[in-house]
């Protein structure tokens, strides 16, 4: 039998041995991420199951001690039920998916020819061309959105040009619709599409395409039977990189989309800042998170399958 003091000293030395430099280095970033990323997410999940309250903070707590010794846990599913029965939220989900999907396809349609053209230029120019693709990304996001307000607004660049040449008499309504939101998203996230596509296309051996020509295939068949399948990893990666941020986007639909383009991101913002309903905002965020995680899991699984089939 050890005495109590001996046991404590033993435990302390064991603990001290654990606090080596290595564990200290691991613990600092880990603690940061735990405290400021994992904890907030857990709190968010907790609030999404609570009830709205007019108080500070404006929600009920899930765990209650009743008369000192009864632990009561109340899980309120009403927020989630509400989201899937109210028409406004359902329309919000659909709008978000439509806008993110359309922008992803547009990004692909613009990004693929560009990535292909960059990969086909002389090696000397490629790094400069790629740098030129990223350079706008370094300028502020808001400025890039603002540029489109300036181009599309009723007294903006495009409309004043059209009016000057008398092509239209009344300014066209280009801003404040989902079309403008899509353009903004395509413009903002195009580099995310071009880079993975370029990486995939660059690896394609041009001799394969020449062989296809020699065997008598038309450029279109050669393109669809050689270039597209070989660049599939890039297509999937680029689409995920555009779709995922696009679906949770707030700034672009808010500034370019007008009132009727209510995406999930905007709904979360409105619930929080205008309706002051924290539980609804929290449960909307959780649903949005599911929309974000699904495409990631999908591309991840595809990659795993690819690796397995290669082996």
């Amino acid at each position: 039998m050890y005495r109590i003091e001996e046991r404590i000293i033993f435990l302390l030395t064991k603990l001290a041995r654990k606090i080596s430099g290595r564990n200290l280095i691991i613990s600092i970033p880990f603690l940061w991420i735990f405290l400021f990323f994992i904890c907030p997410c857990l709190i968010l999940i907790q609030i999404s199951f609570s009830e709205s309250l007019i108080a500070s903070p404006p929600y009920t707590s899930l765990v209650d001690w009743i008369s000192g010794h009864v632990l009561q846990i109340r899980i309120n599913l009403e927020n989630y039920m509400f989201l899937f029965t109210d028409e406004m939220y359902i329309r919000g989900f659909i709008t978000s998916i439509l806008i993110a999907g359309t922008s992803t396809i547009c990004c692909l349609l613009i990004g693929f020819p560009m990535a292909y053209a960059i990969a086909r230029t002389h090696e000397k120019f490629r790094s400069i061309l790629l740098m030129l693709v990223v350079l706008p990304f370094w300028t502020s996001f808001l400025i890039r959105v603002y540029a489109w307000i300036m181009l599309l607004s009723p007294c903006g660049f495009i409309n004043s040009l059209l009016m000057k040449f008398h092509l239209v008499d009344v300014p066209l309504q280009l801003l404040n619709n989902s079309f403008a939101a899509c353009i903004g998203i395509v413009y903002a996230y195009l580099p995310f599409m071009i880079f993975p596509l370029y990486n995939a296309i660059e690896k394609i051996d041009y001799a394969l395409i020449e062989a296809a020509y020699d065997l008598g295939s038309s450029p279109i068949t050669a393109f669809f039977s050689i270039v597209v399948p070989l660049s599939a990893p890039g297509i999937y990666a680029g689409s995920a990189l555009v779709f995922v941020p696009a679906i949770g986007e707030f700034v672009i639909p808010e500034l370019l989309g007008g009132v009727q383009t209510l995406t999930i991101g905007r709904l979360v913002w409105n619930e929080f800042f205008e309706n002051m309903s924290w539980p609804t905002a929290a449960s909307l965020s959780i649903v949005l998170l599911i929309f974000v995680v699904l495409p990631i899991v999908f591309t991840q699984r595809r990659r795993e399958i690819e690796v397995l089939t290669k082996e």
Binding site: C41, L44, F250, V268, L289
Partner: peptide, 15 residues
């Protein structure tokens, strides 16, 4: 990296 900014802002504020 993939977290929508709205969710990050909301959850951090709640924290």
């Amino acid at each position: 990296l993939v977290m929508p900014e709205v969710i990050m802002g909301l959850s951090l504020l709640m924290l």
